[in-house]
Design a protein around this nucleic acid. Structure first.
Lengths: 175, 175
DNA sequence: CTCCGTTTGTTTAAGATTCAAGAAATGGAT
DNA sequence: ATCCATTTCTTGAATCTTAAACAAACGGAG
């Protein structure tokens, strides 16, 4: 491919940074503004109604969805897309609240399970409707079905590209 | 409207929370994952290459784009979608780095200008190409033109809905 | 002019996140 | 069996963010 004798339509980028076009800049600004506002909005909503930031709430949700309401620390971190360090601190806090407890992993002495407590489950049940409502109001109620679908595809692609988990391809073995 | 004798297709929601459908959940999860990973990725990139987190970088950009490279604190906060408190702390730090300085507003003794210094401008020039590159690589290079356009529209809508600046409509005056 | 609700910006303390470092266990390879 | 690179998870310090409280200046109503 690309062997046809078509003259390059633009000079080779050389060292010039490829700046964003005006339109790309607008898109990017919109993304930054929306994600900043949204994160902020949901953090505030959950801090007020559930006494925890959005990401902590997400951790409880992951646990609630898991078999036996438990997950190894590393797994939970992977699901939630955060570092283990951050998770350690977060779970320490959630433990202090009585919403999560830890348990040793029998098969691997290094391992720890984070387990959603009954209390944690109740906080979740009590606050989930309000949170869903906030998400709906901020996002889904404002978008057409096509836009929702599009958003899903786009974000899936972006997330995919940033996963540390290169699934086999282009592993830099031997360089 | 809605006076036609069509039987309601679904029972009135009563108090039942309107949960997200399975598809909506997938979209929402993708959004959360992508935005978490992206924010993290850019924070790391800029911390490494420019010695500041993404949002601080954004503040310098806003200043650079402004007439006389300055902005009142409140204006800057509004542009960047952050609280004045957060901005106060951020500018204090940027000032310590020599990238921003403050100046009193002559016409309003309460006011302060945040001003991009020459040094700040240089940091920006030096690090902008790498940052643009990171954004491109993570987002624009992976999306079709249609998806880029769609992303812009969607985020514009979401941001719009979260702006504190309700432009006139439905102000709850007298209640 | 004075009063008083609002706006502007900062400060403090508490909480959250990052980064680097490190302890403990694992699982091969020798 | 022993070595050792890797994985798992935690810790402490520095940094960043939030929430609430505050002082100072503003500006319109009376």
């Amino acid at each position: 491919m690309n062997t046809a004798p078509i003259p390059a339509p633009a000079p080779p980028p050389a060292d010039e940074p490829r700046w964003l076009t005006a339109e790309e800049q607008r898109v990017w600004r919109s993304y930054i503004e929306a994600s900043t506002l949204l994160e902020d909005h949901l953090d505030r909503q959950l801090q007020r109604d559930a006494g925890m930031p959005h990401i902590y709430y997400g951790l409880l949700v992951k646990l609630a969805e898991s078999p036996r309401r438990r997950l190894r620390m590393t797994e939970l971190a992977r699901h939630a897309k955060i570092t283990r360090s951050r998770l350690s601190h977060a779970v320490a806090r959630l433990e202090k609240n009585g919403w999560v407890r830890r348990e040793d992993c029998p098969s691997d002495k290094r391992g720890q399970f984070a387990i959603l407590t009954e209390e944690g489950y109740e906080v979740l049940s009590r606050t989930a409707p309000g949170h869903v409502n906030a998400v709906r109001q901020a996002v889904f109620d404002r978008l057409t079905p096509e836009q929702q679908k599009s958003l899903g595809e786009i974000m899936r692609i972006v997330a995919e590209g940033l996963q540390p988990s290169e699934t086999g391809a282009d592993l830099p073995w031997l360089r």
